[in-house]
């Protein structure tokens, strides 16, 4: 499927278009992908909401409860209404958003690091290392992710003390969730990276680097890895959306981030029973998850179209 030799028609294309780097070309294409641009704008707005909102409300206010003010419909005082113990939902979606986005981003960083290391080692060295790493990858893929998440959430869910990051106290379960999402999602990326390495390592420029005595780690990190960045970025972008959804699922099953630390996922969980009596409880966090996942998916889709070296549409 990977047709490496350019065909006549493709050469003709190259003659007409001025020579652009992959990134310039990518940006040109990405710009035309209207939904990806739209997604980008929404995502920026969401980040402004979650992190800029912190200037409007303190975290103490987000956790402030007053049971006599419970389940109030949206009003001027509480634009998003109040929850089952009278906390302000707007403030909670702001601070919950920070955690949800944080979980999404950090777990994907873990995923990406794991995926690159395992994929690169397997693809570059081949042989026994490849066989062992790919068996591990297969082993992980052989169990449905949700089952793995549940077992691991229970395994790590025991004694996690609260942690303090940048002056804020988090439930230790935030770290647990990040680790288990990262640890159960790297397999696809590892396979992508391995495939890229396999096809790249036989190229002339790598053979040349080897011949001049360049060390293996240099070849891996300076020569091959930069050439595999495009698929890694696309895959990681889409993984952020999956990580945010995974947090919501695991929260729904009661194994997610523990209260009082809010996340969009656990806000949605406890609101399920107020489906009709207090719809603002699920509407706002639900919409925010939806918008985030949606915009990330749009961006990822746009990137895929834009950075795919085989795609010739401009």
């Amino acid at each position: 499927m990977n047709n490496q030799t350019p065909t006549l028609s493709e050469l003709a294309d190259d003659l007409i278009t001025p020579p652009l780097t992959l990134w310039q070309l990518g940006w040109l294409r990405f710009r035309r992908h209207k939904m990806a641009l739209f997604g980008g704008v929404i995502l920026i707005l969401l980040f402004i909401f979650a992190f800029g909102g912190a200037f409007l409300y303190t975290e103490k206010y987000a956790n402030f409860n007053d049971t006599s003010q419970r389940l109030l419909a949206p009003s001027a005082e509480h634009p998003f209404g109040t929850d089952s113990i009278g906390r302000d939902i707007l403030a909670r979606t702001i601070y919950g958003g920070q955690i949800s986005l944080f979980i999404g981003l950090v777990s994907v960083i873990i995923e990406t690091i794991l995926g690159i290391i395992i994929g690169a080692l397997a693809g570059y060295y081949g042989g026994v290392i490849d066989a062992i790493l790919m068996r591990i990858t297969e082993a992980m893929l052989n169990i449905p992710t949700i089952f793995l998440l549940i077992v691991m959430a229970k395994f790590f869910g025991g004694n996690v003390p609260e942690i303090e990051i940048a002056g804020r106290v988090f439930s230790g379960s935030v770290i647990v969730i990040i680790v288990i999402i990262g640890a159960t999602s790297w397999m696809y990326l590892a396979r992508i990276v391995r495939a890229e390495f396999l096809s790249l390592k036989e190229n002339e420029f790598i053979l040349a680097a080897r011949a001049t005595g360049t060390s293996n780690s240099q070849i891996i990190f300076y020569h091959i890895l930069p050439n595999t960045v495009a698929p890694i970025i696309v895959s990681s972008t889409l993984s952020v959306a999956n990580a945010i959804l995974a947090e919501a699922y695991i929260s729904f099953l009661g194994l997610g981030v523990m209260p009082p630390t809010a996340t969009w996922g656990n806000m949605l969980e406890s609101s399920a029973k107020y489906l009709d009596s207090a719809p603002w409880l699920w509407f706002f966090p639900g919409m925010l998850i939806l918008l985030t996942v949606l915009s990330i998916n749009f961006i990822g889709d746009g990137m895929r179209d834009a950075l795919d070296p085989r795609s010739r549409t401009i």
Partner: peptide, 14 residues
């Protein structure tokens, strides 16, 4: 992890 317990915990914390 029962919900009403978590609610009491939040109230008691404050």
């Amino acid at each position: 992890t029962r919900e009403v317990r978590q609610e009491l915990q939040a109230v008691a914390q404050q």
